[in-house]
Computed example of a mutant assay.
Amino acid sequence: MLEAQAGLGAGDYQHVVAFFGTDHDTDLLAQTLAEVFPGVPVSGCSTAGEIGPFGMMQGGLVLIAFPRHGFRVHSELITDIDRFGVEHATDAARRLKTHVCPGSERLPRQNVFALLLVDGLSNAEENIVAAIHWELDDVELVGGSAGDGISFQRTAMIHNGKVAQRAAVLMMIETEFPFRVFKTQNFEPTSIKLVVTAADTENRIVHELNAEPAAREYASAIGLRPDDLGPFSFASYPLVVKVGGDYYCRSIRNMNPDGSLSFFCAIDEGLVFTVARPRDILSSTAATLHELDEALGGIDLVVGFDCILRRLDAETRQIRHQMDALYQKYGVTGFHTYGEQFNAMHLNQTLTGIAFGQRAEA
């Protein structure tokens, strides 16, 4: 904690955001953060890995502090998202909107964005992301789903000293700094199709693909045996769906003992998956960050939400050190997620985020 605090340096902070590994005692961490930053709101979540000043890590603590000079941050904890997600998320967005723009005026999109941290085991991301985006007049929204390594057992949200599960933290951020909300992905579709023929949609579990046991059919499609399936094969052979002319990942979370497959995103019977293969993750990510750097006249900081499967893919291809160097070059700080939020969409196997430039001198 002291090392992370020292890394921030002295300052007058508007809001502190914390990303932490699940080895931390969450209750103690929330209490300590409240004591270390008295009077400063603190939000955060557990992760599937962190991204800090020295690249990717696991079991660490990353703190991002928004200064008072140039930022105004409004936040709310959204509870019971698995039962009342749409209702609670809409109410929270409406309340935050009144802080930014009282009355019936529309939000000023040029200097406002929304940041969402959400329990990655809630199975509620799609509904609350869509509800928030609708309520906020299409103000750009970005964020990530909290994780717990690759255990898929228990995630945690923190907000102003409180710890919660099945919850989300929504922040409305006003800034005088130039920014760009972005996403990048690195896969291309193949000709192989898999149709969901039996599923438990509420729990995001696919039992059958093409009327065959799901794990066996997926393994056959990518040239592996079911016993060889695992996080690294899911990262190397993502499943995608076509929406509005573009492809989006619906990534596999894990294989279950009965041969079914659990997913990070919503699924439904009749859904047509296309097996995809990754393109060069290093060059595609570098191209996106370079474009942001050019557009902003130099990047000051990137708050990034990077799918856990992208990290596993980088490790499989033995380019993790190159990814670390790339993230350090452009100041990418954030965490590895169980899913990424981008405007009205809940995504997988992407890097989403917000890049900040330097504030223009008065």
Rank of each mutant, 00 (worst) to 15 (best):
T197Y: 14
L117A: 05
G353R: 05
F264S: 11
T350R: 09
H99W: 07
Q185H: 13
F66A: 05
N254V: 08
V196R: 01
D324W: 02
A287D: 13
Y237T: 06
M323N: 04
L170W: 01
I81Q: 05
I132P: 04
E291Q: 15
L289S: 05
G144V: 07
R106V: 08
H346E: 09
V169K: 00
P189E: 07
D23V: 00
L63Y: 08
H290C: 06
A146P: 00
V302M: 02
H88F: 08
D82H: 11
L63W: 06
A198W: 07
E294V: 15
A65H: 03
D227L: 09
A221D: 03
H346Q: 03
E35F: 12
I319T: 00
A221L: 03
D293T: 09
L289R: 02
V243Y: 14
V73I: 12
D27T: 14
P238V: 07
V142N: 06
E35M: 10
D12A: 10
E126Q: 09
F179K: 01
I192E: 01
P231A: 13
R311Q: 09
G144D: 02
Q328G: 07
S251D: 03
E126P: 02
L2D: 14
A355R: 02
R317S: 15
F152V: 00
A167F: 06
T155Y: 02
T285G: 04
L2A: 08
H88M: 10
R320N: 06
I132V: 13
L170A: 10
A131Y: 08
E294H: 14
Y327G: 01
R95W: 09
M255L: 13
M345F: 15
K329H: 12
R166H: 03
K183E: 10
F177P: 01
V206W: 06
H321M: 06
E361I: 13
A164T: 10
R317V: 08
V302H: 00
V169I: 09
R279P: 01
G259E: 12
P108N: 15
G11W: 14
G103H: 15
L351W: 01
N256H: 12
V196H: 04
T22R: 08
R83I: 03
D280G: 03
Q349W: 06
K97G: 11
T98M: 09
H159A: 10
S122R: 01
D306E: 09
Q31K: 15
K193C: 02
T155R: 02
G21M: 09
S191Y: 11
T26R: 15
